[in-house]
Nucleic acid binder design. Structure first.
Length: 581
RNA sequence: GCACCCGUAGCUCAGCUGGAUAGAGCGUUGCCCUCCGAAGGCAAAGGCCGGACGUUCGAAUCGUCUCGGGUGCGCCA
């Protein structure tokens, strides 16, 4: 159960009964949330203030009437009007015991909702060019997209995780030429990779593969003949590398969508352009040259343009290059029309900071191809600076010109990589400190949260030894006398657990998985603090041979804490180890 | 020149879509280990939320302007 949602509904109902004429939309704006200052109570509502003005009434007056409505409610210990018209509730202890009981009953389901109502959502993320293995620049978006997809699935959306393979542009020809050199190298030639081609070692196996498959057969062929063949081999190999990197990070996609399938005489790009033309959204025209940086090669010419400005973009956008082929954007419009035609009215794209200039035209494209029916939320990942001992890391000796995602995962592990990258708002540029994520201290949020989970497990291990009289089965714990949990520490922890559902919902509505990470860190802090109090005060121990009933109730509380930690970590794709080595 | 992101404690960052006296970690200072794991806990000090106007019952949050920092800027992908 979500006690906040429950009381929001009760307050709304009370408001409706007192003021039947007040509009539903207005009532819906009222919220019930924990007050910033716990001294104000458990729950706080702004309902009276929200409706005061339209009703032409004094907010405190309305609040007082609402308070009177709840005065006799057995769930409410006290209710008072405060400040400009807040309604502050202090709930009776049995309510919190009920919340705790519901967590035990819901288990892994606790926090799940039907917010999404099964609606289809497409989350496109990573979409790294298939020209080499993943590098650290891709990592943040990979982790974010994966966690966001899990979060949305958790609240009831039908989520598709999608990867758009940019396998149609010039860069894959460059890849093929680079691989061809490695092929010649594999046949014994001494090779120097010229500037402009990809120098990475990861193409050597492709060269060897080609040598095994074709022998010297490709050497005397013209490029036009070998290039498509080599390109296929190289593309497959690169996608295999990328999939491996993603798998090691714990990221999986449902759909790998090839850009190439959109091209061709009767492909989606051609059809989409024809459709846009029919809609009057394409015209021949000129654009102003870009300001700021001077481009010597700029050629002022008439070109085929998409009326992006009609949909909120800053300028219209080119669809056809001067050589007659389609621009990347033209294919992307077709791609997003394809998503729309596959039934996605909600789309999310996760892009790197270097693509921030692309957001408006993408939104414009989605609006255009869906007739305004579909919406896309573009999440921009700001830069991650790798740090080591306070110094920025720029080069990796192992990989040559860039740091690979796999270097990161090899050194600090998938869990730490994921949690740290999620422990920050996506709009916020961040430093990723190798030293920090390997520390076993409170500064390291990954450790701190996983440690909390490990501690819940360790408490149960201890209980089995120290409380042999207790049977710690799910049934026994489910029947624990929760009403014995009455100390401020008990209630504080229960109240922290009670916030999980609303945290999930709010995070999902905002497409902000970092809120989950922060919640877990806070919950871990509350739990560790409780645990520590047991050292000074035996009455606050979870495991206390002097009081078996209380111990059982406390263990039920520990069990629910563990469950919520697991639920949260699962959404983030971070493991919950039983013990830390 | 334009667009987007960020300016909140000495440092790194939250701030729940406009709420009450702005929070956490680190760092600083002072306490706490015969005790379920001290890889920890408790407490104190520390703020004009970059600045200025505006919107309203109410602004760190919304709007306009402005000052710093970052990222980008026809046919690359």
């Amino acid at each position: 159960m979500d006690i906040f949602a429950e009381f929001a509904a009760r307050v709304a109902a009370a408001l409706k009964s007192l003021h039947p004429d007040v509009a539903d939309e207005l009532v819906a704006r009222a919220v019930v949330e924990p007050p910033r200052d716990a001294g104000h109570g458990d729950l706080s509502s702004n309902a009276a203030m929200v409706v005061a003005k339209p009703l032409g009434r004094n907010p405190r007056e309305i609040a007082a009437a609402l308070a009177a409505h709840f005065a006799d409610d057995p769930d409410v210990e006290s209710v008072e009007v405060a400040g400009p018209g807040f309604l502050n509730f202090r709930l009776a202890e049995p309510v919190w015991h009920r919340v705790l009981k519901s967590i035990d009953l819901s288990g892994a389901e606790y926090g799940k909702t039907d917010l999404g109502r099964g609606e289809k959502v497409n989350v496109e993320f990573v979409s790294a060019n298939p020209t080499g293995p993943m590098h650290v620049g891709h990592t943040r978006g990979a982790v974010f997209g994966d966690a966001l997809a899990s979060l949305l699935a958790y609240v009831g959306y039908d989520v598709t995780r999608e990867y758009y393979i940019n396998d149609a542009g010039g860069q894959v020809d460059v890849l093929a030429r680079s691989a061809f050199l490695r092929y010649r190298e594999a046949l014994g030639e001494s090779i120097e990779i010229p500037k402009g081609l990809y120098p990475g070692d990861y193409l050597k196996p492709v060269g060897e593969q080609l040598a095994n498959a074709f022998g010297r057969g490709l050497l005397d062929k013209p490029e036009a003949e070998w290039l498509p063949v080599v390109r296929e081999y190289a593309l497959d190999a690169m996608m295999a590398l990328i999939r491996t990197d993603l798998a090691n990070l714990g990221v999986e996609h449902d759909v790998f969508f090839s850009e190439r399938t959109l091209h061709g005489a009767d492909g989606d790009v051609a059809r989409t352009l024809a459709w846009l033309r029919a809609e009057g959204l394409v015209y021949q025209g000129r654009l102003d040259p870009p300001k700021g940086q001077v481009d010597e090669d700029y050629e002022d010419r008439e070109q085929t343009l998409f009326r992006a400005t009609e949909f909120g973009d800053d300028t219209d956008r080119a669809l056809v290059k001067s050589d007659g082929s389609y621009t990347y954007f033209a294919a992307d419009i077709a791609y997003h029309r394809n998503k729309y035609l596959r039934g996605f009215k909600r789309m999310i794209n996760v892009l790197g900071a270097d693509h921030s200039g692309y957001v408006k035209r993408l939104k414009a494209a989605v609006k255009a191809v869906s007739g305004g029916e579909a919406e896309i939320d573009v999440k921009i990942m700001q830069l991650v600076r790798l740090m080591r001992n306070g110094e920025p890391v720029t080069m990796s000796k192992r990989s040559g010109d860039f740091i690979r995602l796999s270097d990161l995962v090899d050194e600090v592990g998938a869990d730490a990589t994921r949690f740290m990258l999620l422990y920050r708002r996506n709009e916020q540029a961040m430093d990723f400190d190798f030293a920090l994520v390997k520390q076993h201290t409170r500064d390291n949020p990954v450790f701190y949260v996983q440690y909390a989970h490990a501690r819940t497990c360790s408490i149960f291990r201890t209980a089995e030894v120290e409380l042999p009289a207790l049977e710690l089965s799910a049934e026994e714990l489910g029947a624990a006398p929760l009403e014995l949990l009455v100390t401020p520490s008990d209630l504080e922890l229960i109240k922290a657990l009670a916030q999980w559902p609303r945290t999930v919902t709010a995070a999902a509505l905002a497409n902000e998985p970092h809120r989950i990470a922060f919640y877990l860190y806070d919950l871990a802090g509350t739990f560790h603090a409780f645990w520590a109090r047991g050292r000074d005060d035996r009455a606050l121990r979870f495991v206390n041979p002097e009081d078996l009933k209380l111990s059982l109730a406390r263990l039920a509380l520990v069990g629910s804490t563990r469950q919520v930690l697991v639920n949260g970590l699962t959404v983030l794709g971070v493991s919950a180890p039983d013990e830390l080595s």
